[in-house]
Nucleic acid binder design. Sequence first.
RNA 1: AGGCGGAUAGCUCAGUGGGAAGAGCGCCGGCCUUACAAGCCGGAGGUCGCAGGUUCAAUCCCUGUUCCGCCUACCA
Length: 890
Amino acid sequence: MGSKILDKSYDPHPVEEKWYRYWMEGDFFRADPFSDRKPYSIVIPPPNVTGVLHIGHALNNTLQDILIRFKRMEGFNVLWMPGTDHAGIATQNVVEKQLLEEGMDRHRLGREKFIERVWKWKEQSGGTIINQLKKLGASCDWSRERFTMDEGLSEAVKEVFIRLYHEGLIYRSHYIINWCPRCQTALSDLEVEHQELPGKLYYLKYLFQGKDRFLVVATTRPETLLGDTAVAVHPEDDRYRSFIGETVLLPILGRAIPVIADPYVDREFGTGCLKITPAHDFNDFEIGLKHGLPQIKVIDEEGRMKEEAGPYRGMDRFECRKKILEDLEREGLLLKVEDYSHKVGHCYRCKTIVEPNLSLQWFVRMKPLAEPAIEAVRRGRTRIIPSLWEKTYFEWMENIKDWCISRQIWWGHRIPAWYCQSCGETMVGKKEPPSCLKCGSTALRAETDVLDTWFSSALWPFSTMGWPEETPELKVFYPTSVLVTGFDILFFWVARMMMMGIKFMGDVPFRDVYIHGLVRDERGEKYSKTRGNVLDPLDLIQRYGADALRFTLAALTMPGSDIKLSEARTEGYRHFVNKIWNASRFVLMNLEEFDPEEIFKIYPPEEYSLPDRWIRARLNRTIRGVRQALEEYKFNEATHLLYQFTWHEYCDWYLELVKPYLYQTSDEKRKILTQKNLFETLDILLRLLHPFMPFVTEELWQRLLVRKPKESIMVAPYPEPEDRFDEGPWMREMEWVIEVITALRNVRGEMNLPPGERIDVLLRTEEEAKIEERVQRNQIFIEALARVKELRIGKDLRRPPCSAFVQVQEAEIFIPMDPSRMESEKRRLQKEIAKVEKEIAFVSRKLSNEQFLAKAPPEVVSEEKSKVADYQLLKSKLEENLRRVQEALG
RNA sequence: AGGCGGAUAGCUCAGUGGGAAGAGCGCCGGCCUUACAAGCCGGAGGUCGCAGGUUCAAUCCCUGUUCCGCCUACCA
């Protein structure tokens, strides 16, 4: 049937090209909101629009594609919603860098021109990552591709903002926030990465007014003292109790500030005196509010010292630190310096050290949104898999803080707010009001801030489906079936989608959340450009093929742990792909004269040969295992089952067992049935493998089914176990044959008999008739696979003087050999005896333990007993044979 | 500081409701046996981090401990 002989090895690239185009042209990825089949949907975690595919994307999308292809083949109405994220700060930074290279900057360019420029960059590079996903084989419905700054999605963003504002869940307030002096914007708590850095702890003298007494405070940031408005001590600290309410003079500036008491102060740390800088420290801010302290900003938005910093004005904050230390030293106010390692916050986009700063920003009140999202997971309306992440989710959600959503950048969704310049009224709405709703003034000023990029991401599961319109897509595909993502964005994204989904759709956004690990390099380090260890998935596809890469990623994915990608593994799976290619090549070669009509005939299982039935039973078992593993998101288990079955059962045994029937028999019916089974099993196997390796399976399947109407393996049914081919007692015969062949090969291998050298085999058994029949039925296999010249069976067969011995179930096997080989047979037997003796010793020790006999379950005891008996018998046989060998050796 | 995860063959990692452990790669020996040398056949290699405990029996359960990694946190 196969019209053309396949090449000897698989060349992935032309095949990948060809079939991806075929799938696209055939519209196989398209989801149908009007279908009456059961829906299955996934929204892609949208990659940054200007990004390039990295190995983490490759993993994430491979897993999604496996699930999607599996479900599609199972007959579900499948939607995989693709799209990209505008990635506010990240994208803006990239374009700013480009401008810098041109000797330009965004302020000189102006806001409008700059945004135009970003759009241009988006148009230019926005297709890159999408094309890379296609190279991976991702079967997204590309006709639905969305972008977070699309018109529709922007509409959803506005709608959500406005509704939340009117419900009082969004507010604007002066508050201390994390500020990135490089990106020139506020950041949310999550956008700050804490990193342990070596630093110093400085002990500073604060003198009392008019007296020569002083307090000593310890600080890591001496430059912030310029903004100090108090010194705090613990109210019950006897060392300082008497000073509470007094006034100290701030060094350098000489400002008088009070000594206050607050239980927040840790008496054990430093000196027990804490300087309070409400405008530049989160805790100090809270304490300041409590005590009604003034908030003095001394650092500006660029990280430079302000007017209020007096002599240091205009200096960079770190330069100022140096300078102020010199000055303090000179004035004798720097008492001592200690090494001190502490965590410092960095901007997650540009890695600059962030500056806590007082600022007017927009916030989302999170508690009321978080509560139902906690409830949903607690009640199992959304499952988090593996469940260990639930704990992390709960912990964060239960301690959630308000979310600072305004960003002082230009690239993003403009906050839809306007301020009246006469009366100060704030107005929020879809469009700019013609005049102030309160005082009627027409002097309005539009908000210039944009929203945190994660604000629009939080709406992704429903905004992509057309919300706030009531679309058929929403009706059918929301809630989505599963979200596949890494734990690094559990809070950034998953938690916020949960909150927004419940809030605006009245239902959770997904039934399952599958959390996979991060991909790390062989040494377990995170991939990063700065470490220079980036592994480019496209390069891996280039060298090994997309199927091999996908299979590797799936095989390395176990719930709850990170992945260390090893290229050796990918190479191994490229071999596996090639193995499948060649197995198919073999099958196709043998189907050349196969009558296609046979495909549609059905024979009872009894008419199939023993190897046929055996492989079908094994295949059934594999199908069950793979299906279950996929349902449970156990990707490594699924790939393991597929690998073991395909290579070690189908190729190593079945395809070998079948050869005698194909090449040696004159029994036409036998041959036809064998061919039929080859056809059927390969068809099933390819379909079973397809979600994992879509390209090679499509190519082979199309060649196998060359006379069938061409559609695609993508939409062929996913294999189901066939009960009629399930295991039965007859399986034991096949297992026995395999045992005999293995035993014979064992001897051959240990003695280094080349395959060309055929052996005679004598089989001595007590159950002559039974074994004789059995052997007769299977002689053809044993002879072919163990390279046997002549096989004799008998109860009274005599052991030839020069022969190797091996024991199998119900029979002893002798292989006559040249006397020159007796020396190695002796060594082999001695080794075997030693092994058996070790086993006997171990089991006997157990059996001589009375406690064991008394307390262990009887079936365990009897099992051990029969084990030791078997070993003893085997040992005596081995010894007997060893004696004979020694005799022969003289 | 709190929480979580890991420690199993030379390397990367599976595994078990407790009855002396598996894969891939690597290594050693023999083979171009008409699908595949990206292959075939055979083999070697592990006191399952350390110390206790529970049990007839622990790699697996419990306690403690060391090392590694990660996450969260307001000790300056």
